[in-house]
């Protein structure tokens, strides 16, 4: 799909709105909520790049998130290194996990990849609990310091990272790389017959997906100032998949907005007290039921009169 002037205008407008919202609202609370929104957006975009494009669903994206976050955690509490190192290191560690899980399973057809990712994340969660003496167990690692002291400046930093993430992934998705990934979704055998090294592209795109997810994990750790096993949980993975779905799978920017919207929704529903979870689930079910193509991306296309 061609990028139109209005799409770029829309993107700039959205980023401006996100950047200015905490200043306009004059609320430290909003800054915190939006920081979380934007981190989830990074995770959603990174999932969409691999799984949204190739159709090889990754049910354990939390593996990369947790890997990045715990890397930051260990750096802070065990090695007492300069916290900025956690950013590049979280990328490296997450990519290593991608190779370890992806290399044996992506070359196979069938559900092996999806199951392996799901299991790997679950296994890591258990390992964090079993080795509680080293990992802090249920309570995890705490004592992380923020990367930037001013919450507003940190938010702008994370926002910038998210914008770069989305831009890079969208460029890749629109390039020949993205074309090949979509062809892999179409039919792998035909891709092979077209002379394409399918396994390489699958593993490479998983590594790219993991890199950004791990980076998001490190940013999350330095925001929450603690990491704990629920980061590896299947709930984290499923939450992100739902955000991608609501945003519109395959578009990259749709999941970004889907993530922001759903995270905002969770906070905004606080006023409903005990019913918060019920309402959130109901909203999700309505969207998933009535809008199989997602909410955000199709809605934007409708509003701006794009040809479908």
């Amino acid at each position: 799909m061609k990028v139109r002037a209005i799409d770029i205008g829309g993107a700039i407008g959205a980023v401006a709105l996100l950047a200015l919202a905490p200043v306009l609202g004059n609320s430290g609370y909003l800054t915190g909520v939006l920081t979380l929104c934007v981190i989830y957006a990074i995770w959603a975009a990174s999932w969409d790049f691999m799984s949204g494009l190739t159709g090889r669903e990754n049910f354990g994206h939390a593996l990369f998130i947790g890997a990045g976050a715990y890397t930051a955690g260990f750096l802070a509490t065990v090695y007492f290194a300069n916290p900025w190192w956690s950013l590049p290191l979280s990328v490296v560690v997450a990519m290593a996990f991608a190779v370890i899980v992806g290399f044996p399973t992506l070359r196979l057809r069938g559900p092996y990849f999806a199951l392996a990712m799901l299991s790997a994340a679950a296994i890591m969660q258990r390992l964090m609990l079993i080795f509680w003496e080293q990992t802090g167990g249920e309570e995890g690692l705490y004592g992380l310091e923020p990367l930037i002291n001013s919450p507003l400046h940190y938010y702008w930093f994370v926002l910038a990272v998210m914008v770069v993430t989305a831009a890079v992934l969208m460029l890749l998705a629109r390039s020949h790389w993205g074309l090949i990934l979509r062809a892999i979704k179409g039919d792998e055998a035909t891709c092979q017959a077209a002379g394409i090294n399918v396994t390489f592209y699958k593993i490479a795109s998983l590594m790219i997906s993991a890199a950004f997810a791990g980076l998001g994990g490190a940013l999350y750790a330095h925001y929450q100032l603690q990491v704990s096993p629920p980061l590896f949980s299947v709930i984290t993975s499923i939450t992100i998949i739902i955000m991608v779905y609501v945003g519109g799978m395959g578009s990259i920017w749709g999941p970004v907005l889907g993530a922001i919207l759903l995270t905002l929704l969770t906070e905004m529903l606080r006023g409903f007290g005990e019913y918060r979870l019920w309402i959130y689930t109901l909203v999700l079910m309505l969207i998933l039921f009535f809008l199989p193509g997602g909410l955000v991306a199709p809605l934007w296309r409708r509003l701006t009169g794009a040809r479908s």
Binding site: H176, L179, I180, R182, A183, G186, D187, N197
Partner: peptide, 20 residues
């Protein structure tokens, strides 16, 4: 089994990306 969701041109384009 062509690549669904893509145009005719894109289908051939994939093969044009083969290293050869």
């Amino acid at each position: 089994r062509p690549f669904l969701g893509m145009s005719v041109l894109e289908n051939v384009l994939v093969a044009c990306l083969a290293p050869r």
